[in-house]
């Protein structure tokens, strides 16, 4: 058996596979997967205060992909600490908490509140800073698409955070490499990308957008080549680990991201299609390593041959 462990943001993961935030809920996963086999688990993004999210329809299918505009519906950090953290503390899986916000203060306060929570220090291994949500009016893509702003958010959170920081970047900018370099300089411990790509779909009979908010974020296999290229570019520009995200549907897709330079991967949309897929991806990576004579998954990271 090839060794599957990787180190990301100072955390040792038993394998490089985790879910993308908002695509998998371990509370609803009873019998569908063995949670303990996951490299890490990332709950849906939390914010300082409760958010009710965007109007329905919140999703629509597109060619080999989907648009979503959930709008960060969540009950807020206090409810997360009360209701979710005790459960997560017993789940037997490293937890990375995704944090979103509309202002720098909101991000920082949420991280600080989480840090003070009873179970947090032993349960939460890192925070993922979501400065890339396309479905909110402020603090998402608006932060992540500007390198200076992304760096400022990272630096301010770094000041109050007792956790390693992963910054989740957006593809909706021409300066994503600059943003990656800027957040590294500001103290990020790892980078994850890509969040979803702005997209729109229109019903030709009603002439209305198929998403309640008018537009949303595109995910699924349709975005994978874009994501692989971005991970390739960013992993060559920074010295911190990169987590690859974008349309991973199977082990082969995950291996592509590793070869492109990702140290770990997140599986998103595929969980909606096959809730057991992450287990198959973990086994599939292991089988591939064995078949290709690799003893350690780290042997293939960044090893794309040009």
């Amino acid at each position: 058996m090839a060794r599957m462990a990787v180190d990301v943001a100072g955390i040792r993961l038993k394998n490089p596979v985790m879910n993308a935030s908002g695509t998998f809920n371990i509370r609803e996963a009873d019998g569908l997967i063995d949670i303990k086999r996951l490299g890490a688990y990332i709950p849906k993004s939390i914010t300082l205060h409760e958010r009710t999210g965007n109007p329905v329809p919140r999703i629509c299918e597109t060619s080999s992909g989907m648009l979503n505009s959930i709008g960060l519906e969540n009950k807020g950090v206090a409810a997360f600490i009360d209701q979710e953290l005790p459960f997560l503390a017993r789940a037997g899986v490293p937890v990375i908490v995704s944090i979103a916000g509309e202002t720098i203060d909101e991000f920082a306060e949420t991280v600080a509140k989480l840090g003070e929570a009873k179970h947090a220090q032993k349960t939460v291994k890192a925070v993922e800073i979501n400065v890339s949500c396309p479905n909110i009016d402020r603090g998402g893509v608006q932060f992540g698409s500007q390198p200076e702003m992304a760096a400022l958010v990272t630096a301010e959170i770094k000041l109050v955070s007792s956790f390693p920081i992963i910054v989740k970047l957006t593809p909706n900018t021409g300066v994503f490499v600059e943003a990656a370099v800027a957040v590294e300089e500001a103290g990020a411990d790892a980078i994850s990308l890509i969040n979803t790509i702005f997209g729109m779909s229109i019903d030709i009979m009603t002439r209305k957008p198929k998403i309640g908010r008018g537009y949303g974020g595109l995910s699924g296999p349709a975005v994978k080549p874009i994501a692989v290229k971005m991970v390739y570019d960013v992993s060559r520009a920074v010295n911190i680990p990169v987590i690859g995200i974008g349309g991973i549907m199977n082990a082969g897709d995950a291996i592509e991201f590793l070869l492109a330079g990702a140290t770990a991967v997140q599986v998103g949309t595929a969980n909606f299609v096959d809730p057991g897929i992450m287990m198959k991806i973990i086994s599939g990576i292991s089988d591939h390593l064995e078949k290709t004579g690799c003893e350690d998954v780290r042997e293939i990271i960044g090893k794309v041959e040009l």
Binding site: T23, N25, A29, I59, N68
Partner: peptide, 20 residues
Amino acid sequence: KMACGLGACLSCVVDTIDGL
């Protein structure tokens, strides 16, 4: 309209007297 069908993605919400 729903994606996961399992309560994870929060696509298919409805407003009720007890919230979404």
